[in-house]
Structures are given as C-alpha cells and as structure tokens.
Simulated assay, not measured.
Amino acid sequence: MTRYLPAFRAITTREALRFLHQRERFLAALVRPLVWLLVFAAGFRAALGLSITPPYQTYITYETYIVPGLCGMILLFNGMQSSLSLVYDREMGSMRLLLTAPLPRWFLLFSKLCAATFIGVLQCYTFLAVAWAFDITLPPLGYLTALPALILAGLMLGALGLALSSFIKQLENFAGVMNFVIFPMFFLSSALYPLWKMAESSELLHDICAANPFTHAVELIRFALYVDIAPWPLLWTVLATLVFMALAIWGYDPARGLVRRKG
C-alpha cells in the first residue's frame, strides 16, 4: 500500500490539475447538455408524448425526462475526452513513462479511470445545479442516491474510452472513432426518448437500444435520481464495466504489442 497510494494520488492529482487548466473543457461539458435541455427540448416537447412509467409516479415534463440522459451524455463525452488525452500522452511519450512504473498495469489504468470518473461526476452535479436553477427539480434525496449510479456509469463509459484508446495509435484517428461511438450510443438509447416510443416506430431499433450499454447506464441514473434501484440496468452496467476494463488491460498489455511486432 505504501507504493499504491502515492501512485494513485499522483495520477488523480495530475488529471485534476489538467482539468482545472482546461476551462474550455468544463464549459463545453455544460454547454452540450444545456443546449439539449433549453433549446431542443422545446421542440421535442410537442412531438414526443410521455406516459407514466417507472420510476415516475405521475406525468412529467420532457425536460425532466431527459435530465438523466444528459447526465449520461456528460459522462460519455468526459470518458472519451479523457481517453483522447491518453492517446496524446502516448504520442508525447509521457504515457510510456507511466506504464513502465513498477506497478501492475491494471492499477495504473484504474487510477486514470477513477480520476476521469471523479471529474465526470463533478460535471454532472454542476449540470444538475444549473437544471435546478431553471426550475427542473428532482427529489431532494435523489441528488444523494444518484452518486453511486453516476460513479458506476462514469466507470463504465471511462473504461470504454480506455479500451478504444488502447487500439488507436494516432491522435487524428481518435476523433473519427469518437463520432462512430458517441453519437450512435447516445441517440440509440433511452436518453432522449423512452424505449416504448422507439418500439412504436421500429422493433429492430428498440432491440438495439435495449442492448446498448449506455441505455442501461442512463436508466440506472434515472432510477437512482428518484431514490429507486433498477436491478437489470445495475447488473448490465457492472458487466459492461468489467468487459470494457478487461479489454483495456488486454489492449495495453506490452506482450500483445510484442507478439504483433513479431508477427
């Protein structure tokens, strides 16, 4: 533990300082969901009807419905942004120094993941505070019970970003891959519309949305904000986190790169 704790503290502190020095990143993380909340929601409100479905006990406004999905959006973009920094660090050489530290590879990656998740959760609570200022209120206890769900969702999406960054070797290629991952995951989910609404138009799209890990992360956050537990989203989010983290550890395995060079 005398080796692990200082390393964990150093990695998380470095990520926090990097985030503090990138004020534009913080503003961008808030602008994206606020545009959806204040602009797009006004148009979608009339087009999309909502029924009383769990965890809601009554009819709600469309703005209230999309708040959990926009929290998921923040975590998704933050996870990908943190992974982009990994690709940059690898090109600059600092990633190589980190991974050559006399510590398990999984611990180093997990430390990066925890730091990114902390930043993402902080952004989510800032967004929830802004939403509250615009009279979008949630159960008071929900702000507390949502914390474990936000952390788990952040870990899952951050692990996905880690896995992607392990297979992308050039910074220029990462932006394209992000677009092929972020937008399909976000739009093919329950972030902006309930799954039953998607089933009305296409059963195939409904099944794709139901299989999307991001959907389960959003539903986990949604239920937690209303002081409830969604067992299946919880289970699938945990499983997806383990799978993505295993892929990231395998992708950053130096032995795999050695075998590939020999081949």
Rank of each mutant, 00 (worst) to 15 (best):
A149D: 10
R23A: 06
L76E: 03
F107R: 08
L160W: 03
E200C: 06
E24R: 10
Y193S: 13
A163M: 08
P54L: 07
V87T: 07
V218T: 15
P6D: 01
V87P: 10
Q123Y: 15
G142W: 06
Y56A: 00
D228L: 10
V218I: 15
S111H: 01
V35P: 01
R3A: 11
A255D: 07
C209V: 13
Y125V: 09
K112I: 08
F167D: 02
G176S: 07
L98K: 01
T137F: 12
I74Y: 04
T53F: 07
F8E: 04
P140G: 10
T12G: 00
R256I: 10
P213S: 09
L144C: 13
I182K: 04
T215W: 02
W232S: 14
W36F: 14
A28P: 02
H21S: 15
Y252E: 00
R23K: 12
V121F: 10
V181I: 14
I229F: 06
T12C: 10
R90E: 02
F8Q: 05
Y226F: 15
R45D: 06
L76H: 02
S190F: 06
F167A: 11
R96C: 11
T137C: 08
A149N: 06
W196R: 15
I119N: 00
V35I: 11
Q170I: 05
F8A: 05
I52T: 07
A230P: 08
E200Q: 15
L122W: 09
G142M: 00
Y252H: 10
L76F: 07
